[in-house]
Design a binder for these strands. Structure first.
Ligand code: MN
Ligand code: MN
Ligand code: ZN
Ligand code: ZN
Lengths: 156, 156
DNA sequence: TCTCAATTGAAAAAAGTTATTTTTTATCCT
DNA sequence: AGGATAAAAAATAACTTTTTTCAATTGAGA
């Protein structure tokens, strides 16, 4: 297992790999080295929000012959399987992160207008607003996408 | 003034046109027929969220020789001036709407996962959440982008 | 009217993403 | 283990949206 100066690379355990293989099999998909490498990169970068290109750059270290199209195909597949969540921070690329199994709604993000840092918000706290919207607009809410733009502690 | 079956076209008044001309002049820009036509289309479609291509298609009725690049340039300019707000509904294009002068924060949107209808939410109701975030994360909030995904009254 | 910077339309380029084609491979079955 | 087969891969082309380039035009002011 490789060690980088900023910490240890986390990888899927044997059990997680088996679980993934099983999930894929149930839908008629295969577990390829490319797919494993891509998911490993995403797990290694938990907390970041990587674009396909960024994933590609990292995956090439493990798997230098991989193609960018394979990364695109894989993240789409993993999103369809509910393993990844696709996000848009209006910077011209799509970004992906692991779905946190503990949360039933997507968490919120704080985006610094100066340095671009993205911070995650633990609290949901939208129950009141969502209840009111459900009733007032007769709209059943399945999920949300909440971003706050402003200045982080370092920039304000 | 043209009348369509779904209503009357709203246009900038003389005063609004003068105000815009003044605003542009202050920044060294000109009020061209193309810019006026583009803004008129956006005003005519208040409540919708038009893409540059959609604006282009409509503007061509008034101004058939206009180029798509001019539409892109103009919406960018109007956004920079605080007249338009650029949004992203993850459908592959950017979309624009008039900034509502009455609201200090962008309003929320309800997006139907079945029919794609987009409805606007009047209530902000994020004060509690924003206060808490400001304190807990030491982050000063300037604006937000809040979307709720679910099923509208017709689709659920 | 003359000047000049701003703006335009057309075309090309860039950037991100998806589709196509051929080759390779993971999985299942004997 | 070996072979069949459907899925996935790489490579490449195509596509979509947006930006840039550039020569020609225009608007505002002197
Ligand atoms: Mn996140
Ligand atoms: Mn709106
Ligand atoms: Zn910052
Ligand atoms: Zn609907």
């Amino acid at each position: 297992m490789k060690i980088f100066h900023w910490g240890v690379i986390i990888m899927m355990t044997k059990e997680e790999t088996e679980k993934l293989k099983q999930d894929l099999k149930e839908r008629g998909y295969k577990l390829t080295p490319q797919r494993r490498a891509i998911l490993n990169v995403i797990i290694d970068n938990e907390g970041k929000h990587l674009s396909p290109e960024e994933i590609y750059d990292q995956v090439k270290m493990e798997c230098p012959e991989i193609g960018l199209a394979t990364v695109y195909r894989t993240v789409q597949l993993l999103e369809k399987m509910g393993i990844l969540y696709k996000m848009n921070f209006d910077d011209g690329v799509s970004r992906y992160e692991l779905v946190h199994s503990t949360e039933d709604h997507q968490h919120h993000h704080l985006i610094c207008l100066k340095c671009g840092a993205i911070e995650e918000v633990e609290d949901d706290l939208l129950e009141v607003l969502e209840d009111r919207i459900s009733k007032k607009y007769d709209f059943s809410i399945e999920n949300h996408d909440v971003k706050f733009y402003g200045y982080c502690k370092r920039c304000k």
